[in-house]
Design a protein around this nucleic acid. Structure first.
Length: 485
RNA sequence: GGCCGGGUGGCGAAGUGGUCCAACGCAGAGGUCUGCAAAACCUUCAUUCGUGGGUUCAAAUCCCACCCCGGCCUCCA
């Protein structure tokens, strides 16, 4: 089986064939840097991170580009509110983004271009569009003439005439067609501005992705992703701009992930978004849950399906992740150390274990990134590990165990899961409760009491620890523990 | 109004014509193990897949109609 992906352009799954054999270019629309990121942003970044990991694991050389919008109305407004420069504001949130993504285990994109660093490329593309008669100057702004681009509406399935009749678009007398969108905005006093042939101003939002996509990935490339809400008008406009300028088909396959809904106490749900003020920032959640837990939660739904968010659901993900790490920890107890996460040898897996976990995982991922099914394979491996652990430690069992663990870590790595030291997972300390040392001191006391067969004291200490969210597991010769709060 | 995604067990979530297909996880129940626990293992937990019709030897899976949730059509991941 080879990878097939659902292409928003055409609305169907289709086999993915790289334009250049062995190589893939992917552009993902990043964030506008004016606030902290929420789960919805996390979902985009984690989803496409997994796609990139899977492409690489499949042997492809991937160039992953993800931009930052660091100039726009919201940034300007927020910077004025806070009395700081737009650079100061955007760089603060770009740093925050990078920190949050690292916590979620997102591999940094190869290139993270910023809009303000690509003014020449944007101006050049706008000029080309003007020269070709696809854009026009009007009242200090430059607009794209949508009715000059026949394919306009193809991606989003919209028809120009219908759009116009139901238009909620601002009436702007400078536009020839209400749907024309701005490529260059004439300068307003006290706003950041750059010189241009059409007067000082700043770029419109859509042009940056066209210009930077072309610059880093070429006039035609394979994959372009983002949230569903970007299909119209953002991606529609990107296509109009880029193909209008180059005259070539731009992106082969458009990928869009579903929304994260916020659910309120009454059970009502709505799309999580900044304007609705119903979002949870990633960093807020990271105080109580490990990034990997959030990651498992996100990946346990298919990337295109809508999903609900609630804190209770994160607890479920934590328990599930605990099961995976529980198996790894048990294996560590037998093997001494955990085997390295080796890159999975698919050919070997398919030959030796045609129905095995490796093959089933790969097939699930190849089917439009069916991560829930892939995760199910991880859990099957965990069960296998637990069984082997309970069966003893003969050389052949150890060998089998080693293989299982290596596979769990290797496959997990494609999802960005199971790569941590088990103790780090189990000892994650959410709100600065008791320190590890305090916990271990109490455990030592308790074990002393147990040696004296003073079970009353031992149980009292355990009860204390339980109250503090610490769960103990006694084995033959030592006690291990974890935080469960 | 146009277009799009979704409605599967107590919860989350795969599956999109027939093969242990109703996976997997969480929660629950019983058992084994344990000083007691915990973890793990074993067993159990939807004759049923929004509703009503239809097609078929066979449907959660295809067709029609309808209901509900969410979204896009303006900035939005």
């Amino acid at each position: 089986m080879t990878l097939s992906l659902y292409n928003s352009l055409g609305r169907q799954k289709q086999p993915f064939v790289p334009r250049v054999p062995g190589q893939v270019g992917i552009y993902v629309c990043g964030i506008t840097a004016y606030d902290f990121c929420h789960i919805g942003h996390a979902r985009v970044m984690v989803s496409f991170d997994v796609l990139v990991r899977h492409l690489r694991a499949s042997g492809l050389k991937v160039t992953h580009v993800c931009n930052f919008t660091d100039i726009d109305d919201k940034i300007i407004r927020r910077a004025i509110q806070e009395g700081i420069s737009i650079e100061a504001l955007s760089s603060r949130f770009i740093d925050a983004f990078d920190t949050d993504m690292a916590a979620l285990g997102v591999t940094p994109p190869d290139i993270q271009p910023k809009a303000t660093e690509h003014l020449p490329e944007m101006r050049a593309m706008i000029q080309t569009l003007i020269d070709k008669g696809l854009a026009y100057e009007s009242g200090g702004d430059v607009f794209y003439a949508v009715d000059r681009f026949p394919a306009y509406g193809l991606l989003s399935g919209k028809h120009l005439d219908e759009l116009e009749s139901g238009a909620r678009v601002d009436v702007d007398s400078r536009k020839r067609n209400p749907l024309d969108f701005v490529l260059w905005k004439g300068a307003k006093p006290d706003e950041p501005q750059w010189p241009s042939p059409w007067g000082a101003g700043r770029p419109g939002w859509h042009i940056e992705c066209s210009a930077m996509g072309v610059k880093y990935l070429g006039e035609s490339f394979d994959l372009h992703g983002g949230g569903r809400d970007l299909i119209f008008p953002h991606h529609e406009n990107e296509i109009a701009q880029t193909q209008g300028a180059t005259g070539k088909p731009w992106v082969t396959c458009w990928l869009h992930n579903g929304f994260v809904n916020a659910v309120d106490d009454a059970g009502n749900r709505e799309k999580m978004s900044k304007s609705l003020d119903n979002f949870r920032t990633i960093r807020e959640l990271l105080t109580a849950w490990r990034g990997e837990t959030i990651r498992l939660f996100l990946l346990n739904s298919h990337y295109r399906a809508p999903m609900d968010f609630s804190l209770e659901l994160l607890d479920g993900a934590r328990a599930g992740l605990g099961r995976l790490y529980g198996a790894l920890r048990a294996a560590e107890g037998i093997l001494g150390t955990l085997p390295e996460a080796y890159p999975v040898d698919w050919e070997h897996e398919r030959q030796e274990y045609p129905q095995g976990p490796g093959v089933r995982f790969r097939d699930a991922m190849d089917d439009d990134l069916n991560t829930p099914q892939a995760i199910a394979v991880l859990f099957e491996l965990a069960k296998g590990i637990n069984r082997l652990v309970s069966e003893g430690d003969s050389p052949s069992q150890r060998q089998e165990l080693t293989r299982h663990v290596a596979l769990l870590r290797g496959l997990g790595g494609i999802l960005g899961l199971c790569g941590e030291v088990p103790e780090v997972h189990f000892r994650f300390n959410p709100e600065g409760g008791w320190s590890d040392a305090e916990v271990e001191a109490l455990i030592a006391q308790r074990n002393e009491a147990r040696r004296n067969r003073d079970f009353q004291t031992a149980d009292r200490i355990r009860e204390e620890l339980t109250q503090a969210g610490i769960v103990l597991e006694d084995s033959r010769d030592h006690t291990i523990w974890r935080r469960e709060a």
